[in-house]
Design a protein around this nucleic acid. Structure first.
Lengths: 226, 226
DNA sequence: ATCTGTGAATCAATTCACAGCC
DNA sequence: GGCTGTGAATTGATTCACAGAT
């Protein structure tokens, strides 16, 4: 891994702030580049990346330039090296452990979701408040009780919580996670959470995603109204 | 419902284009306002809405002004009326029917997801390619075979497809949806889809969501690296 | 000749600040 | 006095266009 480092990591003080819009695109590049590796591609140009990501080449170059000047003029980018740099920037050089709260349908789906391990995350534990579910297996993991959250977080170095409970239990689940020491929460319950400032929450609401999708297509432009 | 319409709908030519960033916030306002209604609140100010949405009041007022001038100076907004206007803009005055492709864990979770019906969407059918799953029930719905997609779309007025298959089958599922006449796809498989221009696709990738969450918190700022 | 990296220019989004109305 | 609605100002993101490296 050391041989991949061309230049020393910039000191924290000099670290450029990467624009929010660019940060949201880094995972997209990462996915494409990982696929390129499995396809045996080792060099890629901003034009090619742009085509695969559905963007334009200037944006790709600008985004990648926030990481540093890691391309080669006249040639392009070394795929493996770019993967390393994006992972470094996103903090993904090591895997991160997550705990799933809620062993229902959604918890099951998340625990078995193939897109986590390939992106640097490992579902380490699943907990539920329902004792009837405790001891059962979800995706090869034995469900534990929410009361065990504290020891799961402390003993197992879990740093991220996923909320996969019904909406009515989500706020409670979030508070239990925070009480156990978790500071990063990805919330899949269709409800907003109120949390202290030092906890970062990101909510994924499938219904809202559909509403936005709808606005831009069928539902809006040709006013069909069945 | 007619009594809610203060002014006639603007003709298509005069319809203001709402900025993308504002469109993504309309569902958030809608959720908050719906909760306000169940809480018995009938008036709301931009300040209150902003606090609940985690935004500032100026942004809320600007966003709502794209819908028209539906507030009352010195007073605020009528909650029910605002809900109506946002729904109108998002095309949510009627429910929309969706079909879920894939009756595995994720398909199960989506079919039972409580955040759809409350947001104007109804899971009308579930299909799978695996004949062993056909005939079984998922969330009260009998799973049908993907070969039935065409008739589901035609006979049942389904206009939106959700992809809940493993990544390897997602592209195929998308093509089957398009072949059946679907033009709006929400993709939950952890893989990008290549689609014709007249199909609108929105992909939700849980792993990427985690990567972005991570960048902004633990993983990035205090470089712990366990 | 080709493709990156980046200032400069443009376009979009946010915030300011206040006139206008209740 | 309080709150909306909106131009004007500001900040942020995207695109242009070309100098510079290979």
């Amino acid at each position: 891994m050391a041989e991949l480092v061309k230049s020393p990591a910039r000191p924290e003080a000099l670290r450029r702030r990467i624009p929010d819009a660019a940060v949201t695109r880094l995972p997209v590049y990462l996915q494409i580049l990982n696929k390129s590796i499995t396809d045996g591609v080792s060099q890629v140009s901003s034009d090619q990346l742009a085509a695969l990501a559905g963007l334009n080449a200037a944006k790709v170059r600008k985004d990648l330039s926030y990481l540093g000047s890691y391309g080669t003029r006249g040639v392009g980018y070394d795929v493996a090296y770019l993967v390393y740099q994006i992972k470094r920037e996103l903090g993904l050089l090591n895997d991160w452990k997550v705990v799933v709260v809620g062993a229902g349908n959604l918890g099951n789906a998340l625990t078995n979701y193939s897109g986590f391990s390939s992106r640097g995350f490992v579902v380490s534990s699943v907990v539920d408040i329902d004792v009837a579910k405790v001891g059962k297996k979800v995706g090869g993991i034995i469900v534990r009780h929410v009361d065990d959250l504290k020891s799961i977080v402390n003993d197992d170095n879990v740093t991220i919580g996923l909320i996969a409970t019904p909406p009515a239990s989500a706020q409670c689940a979030a508070e239990l996670l925070v009480a156990a020491g978790i500071k990063s929460i990805l919330n899949f319950a269709a409800i907003g959470l109120t949390m202290p400032n030092d906890v970062s929450v990101r909510s994924v609401d499938f219904g809202m995603e559909l509403q936005i999708l709808g606005y831009y297509e069928q539902l809006h432009r040709p006013v069909v109204c069945q």
